[in-house]
Amino acid sequence: MEGKRILYIEDERSMAKIIVDMLHLKGFEVLHLENGKDILEILKKFKPDLCIFDVMLPHIDGFSVAHRVRSVNTTIPIIFLTAKGLTQDVIDGFNAGANDYIKKPFSIDELLIRIAHQLKQSEQAASAAPAADRILGDCIFSSQQYTLQVGDSIFSLSQREVEVMSLLFQRPEEIINRKQLLLSVWGDDSFYNSRNLDVYIRKIRTYFQASARISLITLKSVGFKVILK
């Protein structure tokens, strides 16, 4: 991971210094900013491989910064650092386009592991051979374009949504085991990642609401199943 670029936005200077120094020691190139008001210009100039955003920022909060990033880049990994831990805050984070969400206080080792995992996932997605569009019912899923077309509606997908959708579209009408899905997409089936999965399943289910031919059901404690009507 040496030489990878990280954009880190955090207004708490003492914390930022510790994290920036550690990332430098690990070989990362880091651009630290205290606010994200000029995020689109920053992306053009710095071209990061991964973003780390605090949620509570001056001028514009981290969720809003992520929304702006996703308007121009749907694939770059985004990690939120926050003191907020309520379920709705987690949901808001993933709705903003986050790939991961770390609650303060956290250890540097935890942050490094999560950074490494996100960069590995990003590299694997970039190196994978482009997949053909997959048609299921009245839905067209493009893992290459990061889109899901349902009837006349087209939804832009995050990298994590693409990973989950790929598994769901590979095996329609079959039960996708919850644990296997977690291990395939997140690399472990921890309680935290299980909550993240539920957030993405709810989002994907809202996309399917525009479909007359597909629904996504949850089989409690078992997994998920795409049903063709």
Rank of each mutant, 00 (worst) to 15 (best):
A129N: 11
S64T: 15
A96P: 03
P172T: 08
G85Q: 12
K225E: 12
S211K: 04
I135G: 03
I78T: 02
A212V: 11
M165G: 01
I135N: 09
T74C: 15
T75R: 14
D21M: 13
S122P: 00
Q88K: 14
A131I: 05
F28C: 09
F94P: 00
D138K: 02
L168F: 07
I214F: 01
S142H: 08
L43T: 06
V90A: 01
Y101T: 04
P48K: 10
P77D: 10
V185S: 05
S158Q: 10
S184H: 12
D133H: 08
A126C: 02
N177I: 12
D89I: 08
S107W: 08
N196G: 09
D133G: 02
E10K: 11
V69H: 00
S190A: 10
L136W: 00
L136Y: 07
I19S: 03
G187V: 04
Y8M: 09
F94E: 04
G137D: 06
K37R: 12
S107Q: 06
K17F: 11
L7K: 02
K203G: 14
R205K: 13
F80S: 04
F155H: 14
Q170G: 01
P77V: 05
V150S: 06
E2L: 08
Q145R: 15
H67M: 12
E163D: 13
L216F: 05
V150M: 05
Q121A: 05
F46E: 07
Q170K: 14
S71E: 15
I79L: 08
S215R: 14
A128K: 11
R205M: 12
D152T: 10
P172W: 04
S158T: 15
I42V: 15
E29M: 12
R178P: 00
L181S: 01
Y207E: 06
D54R: 05
C51T: 05
K26F: 10
Y207V: 07
V164W: 00
I201F: 10
I214K: 01
L50H: 06
G62L: 06
Q144K: 13
I176Y: 00
V55A: 08
S221K: 11
I39F: 07
E110T: 13
F94W: 06
R114F: 06
P48V: 03
V69R: 00
G36H: 01
S194A: 07
L197F: 03
I19P: 00
L119M: 07
E174F: 11
E12I: 02
V164G: 03
R205C: 06
